[in-house]
Amino acid sequence: MASFIPSSADTLEDMLLYTQARLTQVACLDCLASVGVKKNSEHHTSIQWNAAALEACPEFARWDASPLGREIHQGCARLVASIDAAVREGHIDIGAEDGY
């Protein structure tokens, strides 16, 4: 039950469009993590994790186990390399469709 209540069904469609459309699953080349990726341009990247992917990532596990814990902004370099490879191999379409 949404708390901010839209007054149009189209708004719910928009929510799905902006959060889920054009996400390509990219498997990490080094572990079992698989994440949703969208690239609206060369420099733009959107990465959607889920709990299973986060659990599978040994980099994140290592940071989680460190005394200071994991910094929220710490990204996984192996995953970034995997995404770059997926882009090179043409698995991910680069470009936005009407802003999403």
Binding site: F4, E42, H43, S46, I47, Q48, L54
Partner: peptide, 22 residues
């Protein structure tokens, strides 16, 4: 804004976004 029991994984799953500012 939802009951604790109604918090879905999508709301809390990690999400990263790099804006292209070029």
């Amino acid at each position: 804004y939802v009951d604790k029991a109604d918090v879905t994984p999508e709301m809390t799953d990690r999400f990263e976004f790099e804006v292209d500012t070029t």
